[in-house]
């Protein structure tokens, strides 16, 4: 009990004093996971739409494969990326190992499947009648796709938020690709692992709280962006009828 109580007090201290080490780690975490989320969304939204709006052989099999990759362990992604970008690997000449860029790559690979899979189900969730209506109203194919993506915005947002959540919370890729190098590749999760191992529970708890706080801020901002998209922020939480 003492450890926990002390930890919480220390956490509050670190946060209130804006401890530079802790802030630096939090900022790097945010930078890496947000970058991975943006890149993954830029891949998953168009490719997911492409898969949803086209009929082709093996579509169902592809979707099952994507869904299977939801459960890929972070350490397996870490291992594969490690083998690709290590000095002797095929992408070794980029020198990405032990760098934030490598970690962004790894987290992107990790979260693209779950984002894409959920975006495909988000688009499938839009009533077929909407698609027919848009075509009947004279939409070209690209106008139709754009409107359907907009119509699915909340479900797509959920997919993106979930992807971000998986990225900022994962340890495997950050550890194997980043290496937890102080001031360079140390992020919240790897720092928690390290500090806990060294018995510094206070810092660990503080970092845990900061991780959740960062997640909260990102989720709130993403929600604001999505609702502002169609000027219906008043209704996002099920506002009054009309």
């Amino acid at each position: 009990m003492d450890d926990i109580a002390e930890g919480v007090i220390q956490a509050i201290n670190l946060i209130i004093t804006l401890n530079p080490d802790v802030m630096q780690i939090a900022a790097l975490s945010l930078y890496i996971s947000l970058s991975a989320t943006i890149i993954a969304a830029l891949i998953a939204i168009p490719v997911g739409s492409l898969i949803h709006f086209h009929e082709f052989r093996g579509k169902r099999a592809l979707i099952i494969l994507i869904q299977t990759l939801y459960s890929v362990p972070t350490v397996v992604v870490g291992l594969v990326i490690y083998l690709l970008i290590s000095r002797s690997g095929p992408l070794g000449f980029f020198g990405l190992l032990w760098s934030p860029a490598g970690m962004i790559l790894g987290q992107t690979v990790l979260i693209v499947p779950i984002m894409m899979g959920l975006i495909i189900s988000a688009l499938s969730g839009i009533d077929r009648g909407i698609s027919d209506t848009l075509v009947a109203l004279g939409a070209t194919t690209s106008q139709k796709v754009l409107e359907i993506v907009k119509e699915a915005r909340y479900a797509i947002l959920s997919a993106v938020v979930l992807g971000f959540g998986r990225a900022i919370a994962e340890v495997g890729v950050a550890m194997m690709i980043g290496g937890n190098i102080r001031d360079q590749t140390r992020v919240l999760t790897t720092a928690i692992t390290l500090e806990t191992g060294m018995g510094n529970f206070g810092i660990s708890i503080a970092l845990g709280i900061i991780l959740l706080a960062v997640a909260l801020i990102v989720v709130v901002i993403l929600n604001l962006i999505t609702s502002g998209f169609s000027d219906d922020s008043r209704h996002i939480a099920g506002g009054p009828r009309g």
């Binding site: 009533d127 009648g129 909407i130 027919d132 209506t133 848009l134 009947a136 109203l137 004279g138 939409a139 070209t140 106008q143 409107e147 119509e151 169609s230 219906d232």
Partner: peptide, 26 residues
């Protein structure tokens, strides 16, 4: 040609924007 389906689908936005779609597309 204009078309009204048996079960009209509306998009999750205002009535005015729904009515404007055909014009926007054109």
């Amino acid at each position: 040609i204009g078309m009204v389906f048996q079960k009209p689908a509306v998009l999750n936005t205002t009535v005015a924007e729904n009515v404007a779609f055909g014009l926007k597309f054109r």
